[in-house]
Design a protein around this nucleic acid. Structure first.
Lengths: 333, 333
DNA sequence: TTGTACGCGTTATCAG
DNA sequence: CTGATAACGCGTACAA
């Protein structure tokens, strides 16, 4: 039941042919439903194929048949609501070019990236990925397949890159908070965010400084980018710094967790404490109050990545794109 | 810029070899970083490859190298929060078998299913899909690749099938509502749900009848399974039947929309109107009040589907599995 | 270190 | 209607 599918040898057309007492050619005809074949022969061949549990080799087929361009997309976690829209953007853009899309996930196991890249690289013509491993490590796994890296700076000259102007987003969030009268602003950061996204602490400090505000060390607290951690960190932050009237989180998932904690603590949002997230997830609109967030146009990011992939495929030099972000003010701040 | 990537002819190893003035063999060595090659030759070959924009053929490679089993998963919409957990379940189970997973999406275009199946079938050993098209249509597209159909009854003998015991879920939801004192219960159904999921109206009527309750026609309203429709339908339902004290929705997305409408209408949940969803999406826990829902164990569904896929691959007869569901009572009812 | 010959499993062509 | 035979592009002996 848990055999590792270790095929001693593949069942091929010829095996079926032998059993059916025909040529491998005839088998091919039967399998592919070509017309020019005797119904009886056809049946006999199909029976033999079933008996042998024959499956056509996709590689041999692909070798002979001309195939469309296929793009491979690697994300770090399918359950993270950040990715679906990105994926949708990639699919839409790829479809417009007549390309096919294959998606793969590392399920938050960063160390598995090389392996995932390698296997996917064997199936596609070009790769796009939200990857954390160092460029050099990735380069060793692509096997010559072009790669566009998302969400973090790239250095490898051969890689395309698409990032987001996070600093501008942080600045906008802080400016909004300050304009609303907040002075004591805390932050839940994420030093080890999946996807290799650099933390936003420096940008936050700089933005605050622009308004003449300094931030105490205990007003910034780190966590992993999950709802659970958001809940825990907000609770901690609240306990350590009751004077804080607004919290800026590394992403919306953390903000969602903060909501939960606030509800549990009896802290009203935004009355007692304003909250600003980052990412602009669709969920933000569904909660009460709707979440104010620095939104990333994830669909566009996907589309831009596909465009970069096309460049690479065309043999043009790799491009580096920085996407703007937009502060979407809703109810939470 | 929008070339349909119509390769006049593929650049092959031999082309590179010709340009570099070596045998195609030497090129292979250079590309694959084999040791036994003169650094100078290597460089020359690599340059030639870059100049020609050479890419190895994944098919030719796969043909020669032994590859792992690859499973293709087709969903109807990556943005629908129902799927991520299912995908995660499939990935986990497949990984445990040493299989690789490729995901593809029809993006809610049911008519595109055959095409997606066909292209994915060319890349994988076995397929799992949330598919709406009739069995016969699907069968015409699989090209001999085994298929496990999710979420709806299957008839094609060759297909594996995994469904959920929706009727039991509806019964549990209604029983809970009735036990809480509700008598006038409305429903937002979804006759055309993506994924070919049959509507739950009959099950709802039957469940109500078990408690001696009848349902007027205008207490059941249909929509598409989206937040937007949930909002609109709830508003309509409320207007048509102000006496209704509880609403059961086809899925959680509709319930989320109902929340929104309720908030806008000043209807308190569950005070003025209780709400019960279906699917048990993670989002349900994040909203206020937390959503009571008939939960589907989507990860398990994925795992079971993989097991069915393994059966098919082993040549065993196709299996049909029905998964239980569980009413998770939270705050909304 | 480099080149030659062969096979991987399939489909297409062309005879029979 | 059926069967040889030749590709498809690449990697792996083995020979040079």
């Amino acid at each position: 039941m848990s055999e590792q599918q270790q095929p001693p040898r593949r069942v091929t057309l010829k095996d079926v042919a032998r059993l059916a007492g025909v040529s491998h050619q005839t088998v091919s005809r039967a399998i592919n439903d070509k017309g020019e074949i005797d119904p009886d022969t056809r049946r006999r061949v199909l029976d033999a194929a079933r008996e042998l549990n024959y499956r056509p080799s996709r590689f041999a087929r692909g070798l002979v048949r001309p195939g469309a361009t296929t793009l491979g997309l690697i994300v770090s976690d399918v359950v993270n609501p950040f990715f679906p829209e990105l994926i949708a953007g990639v699919i839409e853009a790829a479809e417009a070019k007549g390309w096919q899309v294959l998606i793969s996930s590392t399920q938050n196991h960063q160390s598995r990236e090389p392996e995932v890249i390698r296997t996917l690289a064997a199936q596609v013509d070009v790769l796009i990925g939200y990857l954390s491993e160092p460029d050099a490590t990735l380069a060793g796994a692509t096997e010559g397949v072009p790669l566009v890296v998302l969400g973090r700076p790239v250095h490898e000259p051969a890689f395309g890159g698409v990032v987001v102007d996070a600093a501008a987003g942080v600045r906008a969030a802080v400016a909004h908070l300050v304009a609303s009268g907040h002075r004591a602003i805390g932050m839940i950061d994420c030093p080890t965010a999946a996807g290799g996204v650099p933390d936003r602490r420096p940008a936050f400090l700089a933005a605050m400084a622009e308004h003449g505000l300094t931030v105490a060390d205990d007003a910034i607290i780190g966590g992993s980018p999950t709802v659970e951690d958001g809940e825990a960190r907000f609770t901690l932050l609240r306990a350590a710094r009751p004077d804080i009237t607004a919290v800026f989180t590394f992403n919306d998932l953390l903000a969602l967790g903060a909501y939960r904690a606030a509800r549990r603590l009896g802290v009203s949002v935004p009355g007692d404490c304003a909250i600003v997230g980052f990412d602009g997830l669709p969920i933000g609109e569904l909660i009460d109050p709707p979440l104010t967030s620095v939104a990333i146009d994830k669909r566009r990011m996907g589309a831009v990545a596909v465009a970069e992939a096309a460049r690479l495929l065309a043999g043009e030099p790799a491009g580096r794109v920085t996407l703007p972000v937009e502060l979407v003010v809703r109810g939470s701040a």
